[in-house]
Computed example of a mutant assay.
Amino acid sequence: MGLREQLRGTGVALVTPFQKNFSVDYTALGKVIDFVIEGGVNYVVSLGTTGETPTLSKEEKKEIALFTYDKVAGRVPVVVGIGGNNTDELVQELGSFPLDKAVAVLSASPYYSKPSQEGLFQHYKALAAASPKPILLYNVPGRTGRNLNAATTIRLAKEVKNIAGIKEASGDMAQCMEILRDKPEDFLVVSGDDALAFPQIACGMEGIISVAANAYPRAFSDMVSAALKSDLRKAKQINDKLIAGYELMFAENNPAGVKAFMSEMKLIGNYLRLPVVPVSEGLQGKIKEYIAGS
């Protein structure tokens, strides 16, 4: 099965649960992995930015990846997040990180440095050459400060052999449609915006790497599956019920929002590492009301 087939549908960017002392809560992580797989997600992403990777040590990242492989136990594919703004350091990490059981590497664009489009191209070209697994680009300009534009995405897709797809989270529908129009046939394009996944799949994307699916794997997977089958009426009915949830989940911070949902659902404790803090008391109350009524 090719990568496009393996990663079609709903992927979930797993949260990293913490205990009260802020150590990694592996019991809760195991529970979350079972919950999302049993809820119907098609694959999981370990160590995405939703997993609070900027605050995890290198040792913790390796331990989490190995734990995730063991817990998933081949039930669904696993993608591993390896990104940052030090290209040489990432090249070294790609050569030493345990990736044998991963199907691909998701790599967020460099943050803070604000490289030019040529800088972004060369960064990803270097990562692709070093990676033992296919690279998925991750464009999230709201976090990185620089948009990976459609022309650069298509150039990477056509010129760099080991780049297999993109998680597109610019929120720019015109840019998304341009990528979908010009991409090579075997290039995977998935959404990185929960609130836009439904219309983006209708435009031709092949699924999403979701935050919301940590809390609502069944509903979200059903929505994505219906949209991919062109049953847009059913997909819209499910999505309409989730819209208010998306608004609450991303009102203050990700992953503080989704962790607030999951703590109310008794899946994890509501602990985050600084500089991220739990959502405000007022928002937590609204989330509790939403869950009670859904």
Rank of each mutant, 00 (worst) to 15 (best):
G39D: 11
G39V: 03
G40D: 04
G40V: 00
V41H: 07
N42D: 15
Y43K: 08
Y43W: 15
V45H: 07
S46Y: 05
G48Y: 01
E52C: 03
E52R: 01
P54I: 00
P54T: 06
L56T: 06
S57R: 02
S57V: 02
K58L: 12
K58S: 13
E59C: 09
E59S: 13
E59P: 09
K61A: 05
K62S: 10
K62Q: 14
K62C: 08
E63S: 13
E63T: 15
I64K: 02
A65C: 12
F67R: 12
F67Y: 13
F67N: 08
T68N: 07
Y69C: 04
D70E: 15
V72N: 02
A73N: 14
A73W: 14
A73S: 14
G74Y: 09
P77I: 08
V78S: 08
V79D: 04
V79W: 12
V80M: 09
I82L: 12
G83R: 04
G84K: 05
N86M: 11
E89P: 13
V91S: 13
Q92H: 14
Q92M: 12
E93V: 09
L94Y: 00
L94D: 14
D100P: 02
K101A: 04
K101L: 07
A102N: 07
A102R: 02
V103N: 04
V103L: 08
A108W: 03
A108I: 15
P110Q: 06
S113F: 03
P115R: 01
Q117N: 03
Q117T: 03
Q117K: 01
E118Q: 15
L120R: 01
L120W: 02
F121N: 00
F121I: 01
F121V: 03
Q122N: 15
H123D: 14
A126P: 15
A126R: 14
L127T: 05
A128E: 14
A130H: 11
S131D: 10
I135M: 10
G145S: 11
N147A: 09
N147W: 09
A150P: 13
A151G: 06
A151N: 10
T153E: 07
I154D: 00
I154T: 01
R155D: 00
L156V: 13
L156T: 04
K158V: 10
E159G: 01
E159W: 12
V160F: 08
V160L: 01
K161E: 15
N162K: 04
I163Y: 11
I163F: 09
G165W: 10
I166V: 15
K167G: 11
E168N: 10
S170G: 15
